[in-house]
Design a protein around this nucleic acid. Sequence first.
DNA 1: GCCGTTTTCGGCCCGACTGTTTTCAGTCG
Length: 537
Amino acid sequence: MKAPEREVTNRDVAERLTLMARLLGIAGEDQYRIAAYERAGRQIDRLSLPVAGLDEEELTRIPGIGERIAGQIREIAATGTFGELRDLQETIPGSVVDLLGVAGVGPKTLHTLYKKLGIQSLDDLEQAVKGHRLRALSGFGAKREETIQRGIEQFRRRPNRMTRPQADAVLAALPDGPYTVAGSYRRGSSTVARLTIVAIEDRPETREGGDDGVDVRFTEPGRCGTALLCATGSAAFLERLGEVAARQGYRLTPEGLVEAANGRLQEFASEEEVFLFLGMETVPPELREDRGEIELALRHALPGLVGISDVQGDLHAHTTWSDGRQSLEDVAEAGERRGYEYVVITDHSSRVRPEALTKQQAEIERVNRHHDCRLLSGSEVDIRSDGTLGYENRILADLDLVIASVHSGFSQDQDVLTRRILTAMENEHVDVIGHPTGRLLGRRPAYGIDLERVIAHAAATGTALEINASPHRLDLEDIYIRQAKMKGVKLAIGTDAHRIGEFANMRYGITLARRGWCTPDDVLNTRSLSALLEWTS
DNA sequence: GCCGTTTTCGGCCCGACTGTTTTCAGTCG
């Protein structure tokens, strides 16, 4: 038995257990046994206490962890894995497990494909689809072959980019030291291909760092301004800024501004000093995309962007009443800790029967008596595939805020999908369209809708569009946020929090709103409670 | 596999949707 090379984290344990669940699924095991491992994995993942130090008795006190899995967790803590998992891994290659990432392929399908057709890899699967070997199996037909073929194409195209939490994890693992994160991360991009950091040293050696997907640039304190500016980009922004400098007789370099006439170097300790020297307003990193910001900065006319401190509440939260893991009390407490005036409870219409919704409203009133942060009664109501909404109008009329979202029928053609959303906006009770494009970063592309039509109709009907702040969605994308804002459409930033920790994702939503040039006035939840309620009524 | 208990085995979240079926299984959220 080999000891693990580093301390085993809860994430490591959770990953092992989740992998066990997947392998059992492919092996065709009992679904409840599979579910037990999935549940255990989720449970460990959300635990704040490090699980590696617990003994078996303490472990079994965690809901969903019994004697068996407790023993396996102890084994993971000691050796990095566990025997039963190793045994299963020997019978099922890892390349088979990866196929679960193909949309339309679930555990049951994969079990059949693996056992009956011996499919072990993406290439195998594609060959089988192309050779029409799937439709020979019972339960499979031409349509499923097409679905899986689309899934394969999408899987192959998936970009190799980090989500922001993945990037944060890489940054957290870096050794301490004076440095600033630059690049697209600093500009607030929704995903990051490569991390760029500027390390500040008194006597920088001439060297290039670049381990572990991190690009390190060294500078000294006196030159930090241009170094950071150049490392932050974007390329288009820097090119345009270079032109501004050139018109004044300078060349922009990471070391400083070089006088064209005599090669003398002008150094700057901060970005602000560079912009000041060039006679410009400081351009916030989120705007540095060459979308007109340089011209405005020269005229000192940049918009006053919305900031996290402008936020008065969260407009999108789930609880245990649907698929969330937090109670109403948990939400009220989380809102209080964040200094919010309100949080809107927006459980899924598909999971809360009308009678339960009435009960929830009573419960919300009860919770509100004990907390300063006011819970509002809302819903995330499905826009069903036939275009109808998940609740009748008389129920929607009773709610403080209604978010309407598409959760199904993603593959409908663009016109049908677009019209579903337009129709939803026409309902007088619908206040917000949730995650308007439905994308899941790195997993699923945006569904095909005509966003220009959606934005125009949002303006016409006075419906807000959501900026979904979940780092796995970050939906709407910045250029559409800006288009919406320019048409007078309000943006509703919601975290879509399913558990307490996710309220902190608001910062991602704010970053995205800033990339869309939003001022506080463009964002619905910068309003006070009374102003918000006035807007919705 | 876990849990709760009618203490040793039966139930485990569920609704919408799709495709392949003629009543259901699998996927997805």
